[in-house]
Design a binder for these strands. Structure first.
Length: 541
RNA sequence: CGGGGUGUAGCGCAGUUGGUAGCGCACCGCGUUUGGGACGCGGGGGUCCGCGGUUCGAGUCCGCGCACCCCGACCA
């Protein structure tokens, strides 16, 4: 059954140029020094000639430490996601289960975004999961872009369906259809609807959160009376993503316009926020599209304007997905595991009690309870880890792996002075600990610390990013910079073909034309032609 | 769809010339522990991917399937 989609839709594919050796390039730059790995990825790291015995000796299967990010970033990511209990592999290839801890993070992301959507006049609704196949085919670029990755339902209730149903890869088409019904007059505009839901795209290579067959997201779909208004909306929503990323997630993204080659299938213009991950690869973390009148024409979204003339509406769409969780993980995480930005962290403070005797246990626990109460009353998301099967040391490591921003340790030594130990997740070891923190000033101090961590994460990530963007003025320089793993920024006036050539030869793509542009003009780094804007090149996820 | 690989306990794996299945971790019980990933003793857990074949006997050999992983061709 699952093959139906591919077979049916393959013929629709026309000019899918064979694409880049990006993945080869990535593979080549990765160190062959993985310490631990799952069976899944093991073969990648094997020296094909070594014997099985040698491999086992070389790579002990000890399960207690993460690979470091330098050793093998990709394996570090996989293990962090699973061991921090964010997500797990589902029994269906390429699908994930978002576990409660991961979902709690997503809920916080949702609420931060939803608040912003509502504040700008948007409302939520829900559209169907299934889309008639014919809908997808109505917009030419759209069908070409999405055909290869559609899941198709051909049987329902034991009967072969008259028209196959597509499991939505995105909802422009079905929402467009509904908008055509609802929009008759300029008085009906604008329509500003958002939907929280899931979509399915039949990807070849999958990674937890970053690319799975099914993922969760929000998709906003708006319709407007004028091109200007649609463009304003498109940019406004990109700014909301930017504000969210920077101020809630402490992920310093760059706003910009996608190149024609990279824009959404069916859009006139696509805008993006791009983040630099800990391995310096780029991650498209949110997109906003100006669809012009493409979908309005395909779905007959027409209205009568003030002059009683029939006009096509101007539509937009914008989305941010659970992929953003991957962005948070790969932006802030360190060799101990996750570091979650305090504003989004499901648990902001974890309290670890320490005791030896039963007497101590009682006393420590009751103090820990009180601390937890005070924190919660102060509006802090606090949790007490009072499990007695695990040692404090184990708990420290566990909660660090889970990225909880602040840990409070309470032991016998603290009882007497009515004080606690504060440990911040973003500074490892003893230097991140404050001893003898007084109970009376604890709550404001924790709140200040959370704030400090939030700012620190943003600053650290911003500095890291800026240190790895290099200005280039020639193709040779670009190659060198990309080869070194950094991002290259330079004047660009190239064609899509030239962009493709860069991708083929370097593995890098144009991530965006940043909004932040120099005043001057320059010469295209590739062709030497006069260029009006600079582009950012990077290897991307 | 092409090339490569793997299917044995929840996870990671071992299993010799074919002789009736084990190790580590996890899990359960009891006890001792607890300021940076504790320890002892005891215990539970198997359709050895499936089907067929060879054999007195198959995790092991043969055939055919299936699933998953990796690499290539796409993408938020």
């Amino acid at each position: 059954m699952e093959k139906v989609g591919k077979q049916r839709y393959r013929p629709l594919l026309m000019n899918w140029g064979r694409i880049s050796p990006r993945l080869i390039a990535t593979f080549c730059t990765m160190p062959m020094t993985s310490i631990r790995f799952s069976r899944r990825s093991a073969s990648l790291w094997y020296d094909q000639k070594s014997t099985k015995e040698e491999r086992i000796k070389q790579y002990p299967m000890s399960n207690d430490k993460l690979p470091t990010r330098n050793e093998n970033f990709s394996e570090w990511y996989n293990q962090v996601v699973q061991r921090a209990e964010m997500a797990d592999y589902a029994p269906v290839r390429g699908c994930m289960v978002v576990r409660p801890y991961g979902w709690a993070l997503w809920e916080n992301i949702q609420s931060a975004l939803d608040t912003r959507f509502k504040a700008t006049g948007h409302v939520n609704a829900a559209f169907p999961l299934f889309i008639p196949k014919s809908f997808i085919e109505k917009e030419k670029e759209h069908v070409e872009g999405f055909s290869p990755e559609l899941a198709v339902v051909t049987i329902g209730g034991g009967e072969v369906l008259e028209e196959p149903l597509i499991v939505r890869p995105t909802s422009e088409t079905i929402i467009g259809h509904m908008y055509a019904k609802w929009i008759k007059s300029y008085r009906d505009l604008p329509v500003l609807i958002n939907q929280w839901g899931n979509v399915v795209r039949w990807e070849m290579r999958t990674r937890l959160f970053l690319r799975t067959l099914e993922f969760y997201w929000q998709e906003g779909h708006t319709a407007h009376a004028t091109a200007d208004e649609a463009e304003t909306e498109t940019l406004q929503m990109l700014d909301i993503y930017y504000d969210f990323a920077v101020n809630e997630a402490a992920v310093p993204v760059i706003r910009g316009r996608k190149s024609d080659k990279e824009k959404f299938a069916g859009a006139v213009r696509s805008y993006t926020i791009e983040g630099m991950m800990g391995d310096r690869r780029a991650l498209q973390s949110g997109t906003s599209h100006n669809l012009g009148q493409n979908f309005a024409r395909a779905f007959d979204i027409q209205y009568l304007d003030v002059n009683n003339e029939l006009q096509y509406a101007w539509t937009t769409s914008w989305g941010l997905s659970t992929r953003f969780i991957g962005a948070i993980i790969m932006t802030h995480g360190d060799d101990q595991g996750l570091i979650l930005p305090p504003r989004l962290a499901p648990i902001q403070v974890v309290i670890v009690p320490i005791w030896k005797s039963e007497d101590e246990r009682q006393a420590v626990l009751s103090m820990a309870q009180e601390v937890r109460q005070r924190l919660i009353q102060g509006g802090v998301r606090a949790q007490l880890d009072d499990a007695d099967q695990k040692t404090p040391g184990w708990k420290f490591n566990y909660w660090e792996l889970k990225g909880v921003p602040v840990r409070i340790e309470i032991g016998p030594r603290d009882l007497a002075q009515k004080s606690v130990v504060l440990a911040r997740r973003d500074v490892t070891g003893k230097s991140g600990k404050s001893f003898g923190v007084n109970l009376e000033t604890l709550v404001p101090q924790v709140i200040e610390l959370l704030d400090d961590i939030q700012n620190g994460l943003l600053q650290r990530a911003t500095e890291f990013r800026d240190a790895h963007i290099v200005d280039v003025s020639s193709y040779a320089e670009l190659k060198e910079v990309i080869q070194a793993g950094d991002w290259a920024r330079g004047w660009w006036a190239g064609t899509t073909e030239e962009e493709l050539q860069v991708k083929d030869e370097t593995g890098a793509t144009i991530r965006c034309f940043p909004f932040d542009q120099p005043e001057s003009r320059g010469a295209c780094l590739f062709s030497g032609r006069p260029a009006r804007e600079v582009a950012l090149f990077a290897r991307a996820y």
